Amino acid sequence: MRNISDIIEKYLKGILQDSPEGIIEIQRNDLAEQFSCVPSQINYVISTRFTLEKGYLVESKRGGGGYVRIRRIELPGPTTLHTHLHQTIGEEMGQSAAEGLIYQLVEARFLTTREAALMQAAVSREVLMVKLPYRDQIRARMMKAMLISLLS
């Protein structure tokens, strides 16, 4: 059985996908009530699964009438994707940023889940057993090389 975080994530992604603007606005308390959980569980899901690295922009307003607005950031088309990747990756890239970018590319269907799994394995800190900042520099170069060859 899936845990409550997975269920909330799937629900939010579903309504986000159905939104013509790619934006949803939710009330934490209403959502917590709907899923019979505490509002902090909603905060956890949003802060860990709807990050900028994963292709989401989250805005929130606390207090009476507060809301959480989640916006899906679309990747550029294939013609400008290479430029976007070079800007996103830069000269160094941490593991969580790399995983987030890979996730975003899978969600946008630029990568298969198999390609993503291979990439994640190749750039993990367990494989790149080099001290920082060299590890992040190597990871960035590997990400660029793999993505250029896969997306060309």
Results as ranks from 00 to 15, higher is better:
residue 89 I to D: 06
residue 24 I to E: 02
residue 100 G to Q: 03
residue 81 L to V: 05
residue 45 V to W: 00
residue 41 Q to E: 09
residue 124 S to I: 12
residue 136 D to T: 12
residue 32 A to H: 11
residue 132 L to P: 05
residue 131 K to M: 10
residue 55 G to P: 10
residue 85 L to H: 03
residue 127 V to G: 02
residue 146 M to F: 14
residue 92 E to P: 03
residue 67 Y to T: 09
residue 98 A to C: 05
residue 140 A to I: 06
residue 68 V to W: 02
residue 36 S to N: 14
residue 108 A to E: 14
residue 134 Y to S: 10
residue 90 G to F: 09
residue 103 Y to I: 01
residue 16 L to V: 08
residue 101 L to G: 01
residue 42 I to A: 02
residue 81 L to Q: 03
residue 131 K to A: 14
residue 129 M to C: 06
residue 26 I to V: 13
residue 139 R to P: 00
residue 40 S to A: 12
residue 27 Q to M: 12
residue 32 A to L: 12
residue 133 P to L: 07
residue 57 L to K: 14
residue 95 Q to P: 00
residue 83 T to M: 07
residue 70 I to C: 03
residue 122 A to M: 11
residue 55 G to D: 10
residue 134 Y to G: 06
residue 80 T to I: 10
residue 109 R to I: 04
residue 65 G to S: 05
residue 100 G to E: 03
residue 72 R to D: 02
residue 122 A to W: 00
residue 105 L to G: 01
residue 114 R to V: 12
residue 130 V to W: 01
residue 108 A to C: 05
residue 90 G to I: 13
residue 99 E to Q: 11
residue 47 S to M: 02
residue 99 E to M: 07
residue 90 G to Y: 09
residue 54 K to N: 06
residue 30 D to E: 14
residue 72 R to P: 01
residue 133 P to M: 07
residue 74 E to F: 05
residue 68 V to Q: 02
residue 145 A to E: 13
residue 122 A to H: 01
residue 53 E to S: 10
residue 113 T to A: 14
residue 71 R to A: 08
residue 22 G to H: 08
residue 66 G to V: 04
residue 116 A to L: 08
residue 116 A to Y: 04
residue 64 G to F: 09
residue 123 V to R: 01
residue 133 P to Y: 05
residue 22 G to L: 08
residue 90 G to W: 07
residue 107 E to V: 09
residue 125 R to C: 02
residue 124 S to D: 15
residue 38 V to E: 12
residue 53 E to W: 04
residue 80 T to P: 03
residue 51 T to I: 01
residue 90 G to N: 10
residue 56 Y to P: 05
residue 30 D to S: 14
residue 134 Y to T: 12
residue 63 G to A: 08
residue 85 L to V: 10
residue 38 V to N: 14
residue 90 G to A: 11
residue 139 R to S: 00
residue 115 E to G: 11
residue 125 R to S: 15
residue 145 A to I: 09
residue 18 D to N: 14
residue 125 R to D: 15
residue 57 L to P: 00
residue 44 Y to I: 09
residue 73 I to Y: 04
residue 68 V to K: 02
residue 62 R to P: 04
residue 145 A to S: 14
residue 18 D to R: 15
residue 139 R to K: 02
residue 68 V to C: 06
residue 125 R to Y: 03
residue 144 K to P: 00
residue 55 G to A: 10
residue 118 L to K: 12
residue 20 P to T: 10
residue 128 L to E: 04
residue 125 R to I: 06
residue 91 E to Y: 07
residue 133 P to G: 10
residue 30 D to I: 11
residue 101 L to A: 02
residue 84 H to F: 15
residue 96 S to H: 07
residue 101 L to F: 01
residue 53 E to C: 04
residue 143 M to V: 10
